[in-house]
Protein backbone atom coordinates (compact mmCIF):
# COMPACT_ATOMS: atom_id res chain seq x y z
CA UNK A 1 0.00 0.00 0.00
CA UNK A 2 2.51 2.53 -1.11
CA UNK A 3 1.75 6.20 -1.24
CA UNK A 4 1.89 5.94 -4.96
CA UNK A 5 -1.16 3.69 -4.92
CA UNK A 6 -2.99 6.00 -2.60
CA UNK A 7 -2.35 8.93 -4.86
CA UNK A 8 -3.40 6.97 -7.84
CA UNK A 9 -6.71 6.08 -6.23
CA UNK A 10 -7.25 9.65 -5.13
CA UNK A 11 -6.64 10.94 -8.63
CA UNK A 12 -9.01 8.41 -10.10
CA UNK A 13 -11.85 10.08 -8.26
CA UNK A 14 -11.41 13.57 -9.49
CA UNK A 15 -11.08 12.29 -13.01
CA UNK A 16 -14.52 12.81 -14.46
CA UNK A 17 -13.61 13.68 -18.00
CA UNK A 18 -14.30 10.25 -19.45
CA UNK A 19 -17.79 9.45 -20.50
CA UNK A 20 -17.16 5.73 -20.92
CA UNK A 21 -14.52 3.18 -20.19
CA UNK A 22 -13.40 2.61 -23.75
CA UNK A 23 -9.84 3.72 -23.15
CA UNK A 24 -8.96 0.59 -21.19
CA UNK A 25 -6.29 -1.62 -22.55
CA UNK A 26 -7.32 -4.08 -25.24
CA UNK A 27 -5.06 -7.10 -25.46
CA UNK A 28 -3.93 -7.92 -28.96
CA UNK A 29 -4.64 -11.38 -30.43
CA UNK A 30 -0.97 -12.11 -30.96
CA UNK A 31 -0.24 -11.45 -27.30
CA UNK A 32 -3.15 -13.64 -26.17
CA UNK A 33 -2.01 -16.48 -28.41
CA UNK A 34 1.60 -16.02 -27.35
CA UNK A 35 0.69 -16.27 -23.68
CA UNK A 36 -1.47 -19.30 -24.41
CA UNK A 37 1.42 -20.97 -26.22
CA UNK A 38 3.75 -20.27 -23.32
CA UNK A 39 1.23 -21.73 -20.86
CA UNK A 40 0.84 -24.92 -22.86
CA UNK A 41 4.57 -25.21 -23.27
CA UNK A 42 5.13 -24.82 -19.52
CA UNK A 43 2.48 -27.45 -18.80
CA UNK A 44 4.31 -29.89 -21.04
CA UNK A 45 7.58 -29.01 -19.32
CA UNK A 46 6.19 -29.50 -15.84
CA UNK A 47 4.84 -32.95 -16.71
CA UNK A 48 8.09 -33.76 -18.48
CA UNK A 49 10.18 -32.89 -15.45
CA UNK A 50 8.41 -35.46 -13.29
CA UNK A 51 8.92 -38.14 -15.91
CA UNK A 52 12.58 -37.31 -16.09
CA UNK A 53 15.34 -37.80 -13.56
CA UNK A 54 14.63 -37.63 -9.86
CA UNK A 55 15.83 -34.31 -8.56
CA UNK A 56 14.99 -35.16 -4.98
CA UNK A 57 13.76 -32.24 -2.94
CA UNK A 58 14.47 -29.92 -5.82
CA UNK A 59 11.58 -31.44 -7.73
CA UNK A 60 8.77 -29.69 -5.92
CA UNK A 61 10.56 -26.36 -6.18
CA UNK A 62 10.94 -26.74 -9.93
CA UNK A 63 7.26 -27.61 -10.21
CA UNK A 64 6.30 -24.64 -8.05
CA UNK A 65 8.56 -22.28 -9.98
CA UNK A 66 6.90 -23.30 -13.23
CA UNK A 67 3.49 -22.88 -11.61
CA UNK A 68 4.41 -19.40 -10.40
CA UNK A 69 5.56 -18.39 -13.88
CA UNK A 70 2.31 -19.69 -15.35
CA UNK A 71 0.29 -17.89 -12.71
CA UNK A 72 2.19 -14.70 -13.39
CA UNK A 73 1.44 -15.00 -17.11
CA UNK A 74 -2.26 -15.51 -16.44
CA UNK A 75 -2.32 -12.64 -13.96
CA UNK A 76 -0.38 -10.16 -16.01
CA UNK A 77 -1.92 -10.74 -19.41
CA UNK A 78 -5.23 -12.61 -19.14
CA UNK A 79 -6.22 -10.69 -16.02
CA UNK A 80 -4.82 -7.42 -17.35
CA UNK A 81 -2.76 -6.72 -14.27
CA UNK A 82 0.03 -5.35 -16.39
CA UNK A 83 -2.11 -2.41 -17.46
CA UNK A 84 -4.40 -2.25 -14.44
CA UNK A 85 -4.44 -0.08 -11.35
CA UNK A 86 -1.35 -1.24 -9.42
CA UNK A 87 -3.43 -1.53 -6.28
CA UNK A 88 -5.30 -4.49 -7.77
CA UNK A 89 -2.01 -6.26 -8.28
CA UNK A 90 -1.03 -5.29 -4.75
CA UNK A 91 -4.14 -7.05 -3.44
CA UNK A 92 -3.09 -10.23 -5.24
CA UNK A 93 0.45 -10.00 -3.91
CA UNK A 94 -0.81 -9.21 -0.41
CA UNK A 95 -3.07 -12.23 -0.33
CA UNK A 96 -0.26 -14.49 -1.55
CA UNK A 97 2.01 -12.97 1.08
CA UNK A 98 -0.48 -13.72 3.83
CA UNK A 99 -0.93 -17.27 2.60
CA UNK A 100 2.85 -17.56 2.81
CA UNK A 101 2.86 -16.20 6.37
CA UNK A 102 0.12 -18.62 7.31
CA UNK A 103 1.82 -21.67 5.85
CA UNK A 104 5.28 -20.59 7.00
CA UNK A 105 4.41 -20.15 10.66
CA UNK A 106 2.20 -23.21 10.76
CA UNK A 107 4.69 -25.56 9.18
CA UNK A 108 7.55 -24.22 11.27
CA UNK A 109 7.25 -26.73 14.07
CA UNK A 110 4.73 -29.36 12.98
CA UNK A 111 7.47 -31.92 12.82
CA UNK A 112 8.24 -31.24 16.45
CA UNK A 113 4.97 -32.38 17.92
CA UNK A 114 3.86 -35.07 15.48
CA UNK A 115 5.26 -37.75 17.77
CA UNK A 116 2.61 -36.85 20.34
CA UNK A 117 -0.18 -38.32 18.28
CA UNK A 118 -1.28 -41.86 18.81
CA UNK A 119 -0.42 -43.05 15.32
CA UNK A 120 3.29 -43.70 14.85
CA UNK A 121 5.32 -40.79 13.61
CA UNK A 122 6.43 -40.01 10.09
CA UNK A 123 7.71 -42.95 8.15
CA UNK A 124 11.22 -42.85 6.83
CA UNK A 125 12.68 -45.06 4.18
CA UNK A 126 16.06 -46.28 5.37
Amino acid sequence: MSTHTLEHAAHGNGDSAHAGVKHHHVTSPMLLLGVYGALVFLTVITVGVTLGPDLGNLNIWVALLIAVVKAALVGLYFMHLRWDNPFNGAILVMSLLFVAIFIGFTIMDTHHYQQNFSLPGPGRIP
Binding site: F98, I101, F102, F105, M108, D109, H112, Y113, N116
Partner: peptide, 21 residues
Protein backbone atom coordinates in the same frame (compact mmCIF):
# COMPACT_ATOMS: atom_id res chain seq x y z
CA UNK B 1 -2.46 -9.12 14.19
CA UNK B 2 -1.58 -11.75 11.59
CA UNK B 3 1.76 -12.56 13.13
CA UNK B 4 0.88 -13.36 16.71
CA UNK B 5 -1.76 -16.08 16.64
CA UNK B 6 0.57 -18.65 18.18
CA UNK B 7 0.30 -16.99 21.58
CA UNK B 8 -3.03 -18.76 22.00
CA UNK B 9 -1.21 -22.06 21.65
CA UNK B 10 1.65 -21.83 24.12
CA UNK B 11 0.53 -24.97 25.89
CA UNK B 12 -0.80 -26.82 22.85
CA UNK B 13 2.40 -28.74 22.21
CA UNK B 14 3.96 -26.18 19.96
CA UNK B 15 7.75 -26.22 19.90
CA UNK B 16 9.56 -23.91 22.35
CA UNK B 17 11.13 -22.00 19.48
CA UNK B 18 7.76 -21.19 17.95
CA UNK B 19 6.47 -20.18 21.36
CA UNK B 20 9.36 -17.78 21.84
CA UNK B 21 8.91 -16.27 18.38
Amino acid sequence: SFLVWGHHMFVSGQSPLTNAV
